[in-house]
Design a protein around this nucleic acid. Structure first.
Lengths: 193, 193
DNA sequence: GGCAAAACATGCAGGCTTGACTGTTTGTTT
DNA sequence: AAACAAACAGTCAAGCCTGCATGTTTTGCC
């Protein structure tokens, strides 16, 4: 009766999900095999299959886990921002679209395009995450969406960050990104003002 | 002595490369197996291995083929645009970032992130393609890059389109895209004017 | 203490992918 | 026409991935 099994089970599942996300980051979607995930989690394949009987089950759980982590990461950094300043707010969001977690999410999005099961599970989830992100951005920017063009400008900002994140995939792009964001932030300020 | 073998060879290689791109579009990166490509090209595996001895060779050739096709597609549509009008120009570029060819390119980018061979081959190629695309956009917009913020605005537009393309991966996003681009184009016009 | 269930470990079978090997047809050269 | 090279076809072995089946340990409960 050392460790309650419910807690132990939860901990093991967490380890598996973390390992899945790590594998996605390091080896990409096709490199993320169940065997590798089990190894990385320091678990036997048997234990893995006990918790997640199929690869689909594992990945779907990992997707939710990933979404939660991304949301939390953004929220934490947002909380560390005392004064609503546009430049810093955009910078903060940009970080969320260049980190490893975004990369993992991208791997899953691209894979889901041609994987019916993943896709159907992902679309509603991403819709929710997208709305949350939008809301967060609105708050960060101190934007008033009832004014014309504000809503579109905020969304454009997020989509721009998505694109910059893609451009950052293969080689470090931070210098270019900075100068682009500097200009866009100015434009954004005009719309929000 | 009907068909010169050089021409025949070229034709089969084209078929293989087209089949590779088609497979990328339909089945994604991990679904693109050499066997499937050979089948789709209506060729035996022997013939395939004769032309491209490894999968890496095949894919690298397909990447160049894809880049050429994307560039040509954009150039063709650009030529069909008589008067330089900003709205239409942005629309045209947006189409280039939502079509199947962009999807195929995205599959390769994401895969290249964790595939050293692909990556080293892709980085210089994409740098070139990126410059060409930028140049094309500048021409289409009739932009004067010597003026402040113009260069960044053009690049931001391309990165925004990249991001919108990603958002369009899983579900049709054209309505949202239209409204965002409408606002964006307005902002862009201010910078260019 | 004893029993059931959950957590975990290990080995195995089937399917798939890749690249190699051998053979055949078609084109080229002399 | 004869020898040679390229294009093409079919088959095979090795390796990997997934899921299952069978044990072993740990936990919960009586």
């Amino acid at each position: 009766m050392r460790i309650p099994q419910q807690e132990r089970s939860r901990a093991t599942q967490q380890r598996l999900l973390e390992a899945t996300v790590d594998c996605l980051i390091e080896h990409g979607w096709s490199g993320t095999t169940t065997t590798l995930v089990a190894q990385r989690a320091g678990l036997s394949r048997g234990a893995q299959l006990h918790h997640y009987p199929t690869k689909a089950a594992l990945v779907l759980a990992a997707v939710e886990h990933l979404a939660a982590r991304r949301a939390e990461e953004i929220r934490v950094e947002a909380a560390a921002l005392p004064v609503p300043e546009l430049d810093r707010a955009v910078e903060l969001l940009a970080a969320a679209f260049t980190g490893p977690l975004y990369v993992a999410a991208l791997e899953i999005w691209v894979a889901a395009r041609t994987d019916a099961l993943l896709r159907t599970a992902l679309v509603p989830l991403e819709a929710r995450v997208g709305r949350e992100l939008h809301r967060l951005a609105v708050d960060l920017f101190g934007a008033d969406e009832s004014r014309p063009r504000v809503r579109e400008a905020v969304q454009a900002t997020l989509d721009l960050l998505r694109g910059l994140g893609v451009a950052n995939l293969l080689s470090d792009d931070s210098a270019r990104r900075r100068s682009i964001l500097a200009v866009w932030t100015g434009q954004l300020a005009e719309v929000l003002a």
